[in-house]
Nucleic acid binder design. Structure first.
Length: 519
RNA sequence: GCCCUCAUCGUCUAGCCAGGUUAGGACACCAGCCUUUCAAGCUGGCGACACGGGUUCGAAUCCCGUUGAGGGUACCA
């Protein structure tokens, strides 16, 4: 066995032909790697559902790599599984990527558009003896597998079924028998350098011949991917860890097809809370869900980028450009991370209060529409949003905060108003306040503050006696921004109106009966 | 079963490759400050090297094993 083992690195990569594209990779977890661009990377989702956060993270990593080294990102839709593919999902995925700010340089290309080329590649392999006809039925193979499994061993096709001799092939094909095409996996161990895991070896004993063309003539995933990666000139394949065991198959195919083998990097899976599989049950799992929840794309991008990568210093909230500048593959983390909704929420709050107001307003639009504020005055809206952005964790909350500024009448919660009912003088005091607001010359922060403070002095009460009911009147809430800011942003008309409604509410609702006699 | 991979606070991570740190930061949580309220902000607290063996004067760091977790094991992708 020993003599026939082949080390892929030494045996199959004779001359660094691609110059700048060639990378020296040797990463035990900590060995240095030098990657140089330009690179050609790809993101190949299957159009079978919404863009999952795992996929988004893969896309982001590819995006960061291509921007940090220069090069291009190819979007390829892997729609070879016609059963499960849905064209609507292609558009969906594209829009999710666009929303995240990831713009492919090329594509989308449909994998299905090139099946003829894929078939031709299979034929070429067949002609060169690198693949062979497989007349075995699935049942037959499965039986062998089951049997082996029972005995506690693994069944390998190439050990169990020798390829049929040429004359037999000719005869059976002529007879119209259906067959699949199976790739003849080269003998020897397969070792490759993974950008995030370092050297990974699959020993010869676990390698097997695999189908590249189904008996209906359709190419399988492995063939299609490799053909398209060759066609696209892909230099770096960065994808999820679930593909790592496909690498030997793919390397075998790249070599058999006479192509240069790209550099691989396998990102760990993203786990849900409690290390469970991330799914709708554990919380949102797709990009559109987060979008609909009011997460800013910058925040999601930033959060996802940091899930499995760090810049090496203590920076966390980083602009796209900062991430690009700091990005290196050697800082990719090999261990799987659990998605932390709390941290994303915090990150989103950071962006909500830190991004330019206009940017926030743009993203807020759909949420404003949801609460009936589709055509609210942008200036007043801006003032309101600016006051509440440090208090909101998502755009939904932020939109809700804007409602009192535009709605005619507010609903007051008797529970929250309890203490105001106990102030018999309050309605009259608020009446005076209304008068003050009506007549104050300039209705701005200083103006309203003066009105409130002067009135408090006149009434010989603390400012808080007026401030708290006013907050309740204008926002139907006990908490919120500085009251003077709130009133000023609300404007004279709305402030006076809400105050008027509030006095009426106070007068119309008798104070709640005494505490239950049980005390 | 077999194969591949991973393993530092509850979570994300820095430190590991080139052994010597009070093992650093962030989220969450708790407390204080600020304050007209609520946030934000600031300050402090809580809290980890999975386990067992080696190697070494010295191990989170190097080696071996165990355990745990994830992925793969298709004429799915």
């Amino acid at each position: 066995m020993l003599p026939c083992r082949v080390n892929f690195l030494s045996a199959c990569d004779p001359a660094p032909s691609a110059g700048a594209l060639l990378s020296t990779i040797s990463r035990g977890p900590f060995m240095a790697t030098t990657l140089t661009g330009p690179v050609r990377v790809r993101f190949p989702p299957s159009p079978t559902g919404f863009l999952h956060v795992g996929g988004a993270r893969t896309a982001i990593t590819n995006d960061l790599l291509r921007h940090s080294l220069g090069g291009s990102l190819i979007l390829r839709i892997e729609d070879t599984d016609r059963q499960r593919s849905d064209p609507a999902m292609t558009a969906q995925i594209q829009s999710a990527l666009a929303w995240l700010g990831i713009e492919p340089d090329e594509g989308p290309f449909l994998q299905s558009a090139r099946v003829d080329e894929h078939r031709a590649a299979a034929q070429k392999l067949l002609d060169e003896g690198k693949a062979y006809h497989c007349f075995r039925t699935a049942e037959e193979i499965d039986e062998k597998r089951q049997d082996a499994h029972k005995r506690g061993v693994t069944s390998f096709y190439r050990a169990a079924f020798p390829p049929p001799p040429a004359d037999e092939v000719e005869r059976r094909v002529a007879a119209g028998e259906s067959y699949a095409v199976r790739f003849r996996m080269p003998m020897g161990d397969m070792t490759f350098s993974d950008l995030v895991r370092g050297e990974v070896t699959f020993v010869e004993d676990v390698l097997d011949d695999f189908i590249i063309l189904r008996s209906d003539g359709s190419p399988t995933y492995h063939l299609s991917v490799v053909c398209d990666d060759i066609y696209g000139g892909v230099t770096h394949v960065i994808r999820g860890e679930d593909h790592i065991s496909n690498v030997p198959k793919h390397i075998g195919l790249f070599q058999a097809l006479g192509a240069e083998v790209p550099t691989f990097g396998h990102l760990p899976m993203i786990m849900g809370p409690g290390r469970k599989r991330l799914s709708k049950r554990t919380g949102a799992a797709s990009v559109e869900e987060f979008r609909d929840q009011g997460i800013l794309p910058q925040a999601l991008y930033n959060y996802l980028a940091l899930l499995g990568w760090s810049p090496g210093d203590d920076r966390e909230v980083m602009s796209r450009q900062e991430m690009i500048d700091a990005f290196t593959v050697e800082r990719l983390v090999p261990s799987a991370a659990a998605f932390d909704y709390d941290k994303l929420r915090w990150m989103n709050a950071q962006y909500l209060s830190g991004e330019p107001l206009a940017e926030v307003l743009d993203h807020l639009a759909p949420f404003l529409a949801e609460v009936g504020l589709a055509d609210a005055d942008r200036d007043r809206l801006g003032a309101a949003v600016d006051l509440h952005r440090t208090r909101a964790y998502n755009l939904k909350e932020l939109a809700a905060y804007a409602v009192p500024y535009f709605i005619d009448t507010l609903e007051y919660d008797p529970d929250l108003c309890k203490k105001f009912f106990k102030q018999p003088d309050l309605p009259a005091q608020v009446d005076q306040l209304i008068e003050g607001f009506r007549t104050v010359e300039t209705f701005d922060i200083e103006g309203v503050e003066a009105v409130i403070r002067n009135l408090a002095t006149d009434l010989d009460v603390k400012a808080g006696v007026l401030i708290h009911p006013t907050r309740m009147a204008l926002s139907a809430s006990k908490a919120g921004p500085s009251l003077f800011d709130l009133v000023a942003a609300m404007g004279r008309e709305a402030s006076v109106r809400h105050l008027g409604n509030f006095v009426r509410y106070l007068r119309d609702n008798p104070p709640p009966q005494e505490e239950a006699a049980t005390t």
